[in-house]
């Protein structure tokens, strides 16, 4: 259920290099399931510089707040404005319409290599569960 076309972080974000070389970022299905009903997503403005594994925003469910970390570093070039009015997209379609930001990566090759493949992420989840 975790798309094979992208990489994953231990903080349950995914990172997908799109056709134009930007890295699209979102949270995983596992993460949205753990959070429950997402009610608000606070994201950095376009233009903000983020660092790999640095805090980039917050995600709120009814009774919890969690940090969102950037799986890769660089400049935020686009933010998913849909989430403002429809935060439920994160629950309904975490790896598609629920994407959060697009980052112009500075060091994509090295940083993407720091992330896990879908298979690795799934065994990571399994090990976490024990």
């Amino acid at each position: 259920m975790n798309p094979r076309d992208r990489k994953y972080s231990k903080e349950h974000e995914w990172a997908l290099v799109d056709g134009s070389g930007l890295v699209v970022v979102g949270i995983t299905d596992y993460a949205q399931d753990q959070l429950g009903d997402v009610v608000y997503v606070e994201l950095p403005n376009a233009g903000t510089e983020v660092e790999q594994f640095g805090k980039m925003g917050e995600i709120e469910s009814v009774k919890a707040v969690s940090d969102i970390f950037a799986p890769v570093g660089g400049q935020v070039v686009e933010v998913n404005g849909e989430l403002e009015g429809q935060p439920e997209l994160v629950n309904d379609d975490p790896t598609g319409g629920g994407w959060m930001v697009k980052v112009g990566p500075e060091n994509a090759d090295v940083e993407m290599a720091n992330l896990m493949s879908a298979e690795e992420y799934e065994s990571f989840l399994e090990s976490e569960a024990h």
Binding site: V39, Y40, E60, S61, V62, K63, A64, V65
Partner: peptide, 12 residues
Amino acid sequence: LQTREQHIRRER
């Protein structure tokens, strides 16, 4: 909007 409040966000 309880996530603003102390019983959830504590020191933040």
